[in-house]
Each structure stands twice: as structure tokens, then as C-alpha cells.
Amino acid sequence: MNLTLRIWRQTGPDTEGAMTTYEVTDVSPDMSFLEMLDTLNEDLILRGEEPVAFDHDCREGICGACGMVINGNAHGPERTTTCQLHMRQFEDGDVIDIEPWRAAAFPVVKDLVVDRSAFDRIIGSGGYVTAPTGSAPEAHATPVPKAAADTAFEHAECIGCGACVAACPNGSAMLFTSAKVVHLNTLPQGGPERESRVLDMVDTMDDEGFGGCTNTGMCTTVCPKGIPMSSITTMNREYLRALRKGV
């Protein structure tokens, strides 16, 4: 099939960008979206033009690198990562708009690549547990209730792709931050830092320039890992609980 792509091209962080139109021909419906972009880039290189820069790594839906907004939807029409999106979702002759994540906290580095290191700083401020290093602890030393293990696992699935921020009309990182807070605060291993974790991570989230949550639920409609809206509610509860305890 033949497609028309309108891609955001921006040469650097401080330069002006614009949507640029490209034609790609002979796209197989079995290609992934990234493979389709690879085809375009090979074409561009042969023509002596600058290839489109986009983030990608594992290409199997677990790393969260390949973030881009396709036709106004983070990661495209399917709720998955861009690498797991296949061209059979599109039709011959389609015009596809491809834009980078848009958020003040995610400045564009080049074309579709954005700087997501704000997420790293949120994690760095509390997304860990303090444990002595050395030999592995005895596995049964800390019993974890089944329900807590399930909740923690559900939230640990977050791959930090940033689709929640990209989809949120306020560019809010509440779903990302809450996934990590709920993951660790549910487990007994996360207990000692339960209050400081949520307070510090929310402070960092605010400092990085993410917006607040207005409960639109847009984040959950695009999350490739299905982090639920209740994650945000639980973090709000944890935050208010920590404030009451006065850490």
C-alpha cells in the first residue's frame, strides 16, 4: 500500500520545526510502524536527505522507547507501543500525521525524539527501595500477601514510555508517578520509605513542569501496559496520608 506521511521535522532543540510531507510506496501490511519508518529513512538516505530521527530500542513492546503521536493518538490507533503497531491498521492512500510527545517537561531533541529524563529524576527521587547489598536475601524472609503482590506487579508493568503525558491535555505525569508509588508502597519492602517516597516523587513531578491531573482519564486510554486510573487515586490517598503523618 502507498501512504502519505506528514512528519514533524525539527533539526535541534532550539530550532523551529514544521510538519513535512513524505510519500512511502509499497508498504506491506505486515510491517510494523517502525519498519515502515525505516523504509522511509532508507529512501531519504539514498536521496541524500536527513533521515527522520525517532527513538526505538527493543522493538518487542517492553522498553517504551518508541514514543510518537500518530494521528493524534499516542502510539497510534491501537493501545500498544509503536513497534507493536502494524501497518494493517491503516489503509492504502491514508494520510498519517506523526508528531513527537508534546509536553513542556519533554523538550524535543530532534524530529520525533524527546528528552524524557524528567521521568528518570522522578524515579531517582523515590522510585527505589533501600536494601543492603551483598548476598541475596532469603526469599521467604519477607512474606508478601498475594493481593499485594498482584497489585504491585500490575503497576510495575509501567515501561515509562511517556504516552500518559503525551495524551494528557495537561501534560501530567500522574499516571507514571502513581504507577511507581503504588508498586513500591504496596510491598512490605517499600514500607520504610512509604511516606517520603510519595512526597518526594510528587514534589519532583511538580518541579519538572508536568501539569496536574484533572481526571480526564486520557492517560489510561493510551497506556500500553494498562495502568489503571485507580493508580492515581491510590497515590492521592498515599500523598494525603503521608502529609497527615508529617514526614
Binding site: 506528514r6 510538519m19 494521528n71 500525521d97 508534546r102 513542556a104 494528557c168 495537561n170 513542569g209 508536568f210
Partner: peptide, 9 residues
């Protein structure tokens, strides 16, 4: 302020 640039699409 957290979403300074709007999506084209």
C-alpha cells in the same frame, strides 16, 4: 504551561 505546543492532529 505544561502543554505549550498543541498537536497538529
Amino acid at each position: 504551561a505544561a502543554r505549550p505546543v498543541k498537536y497538529v492532529h
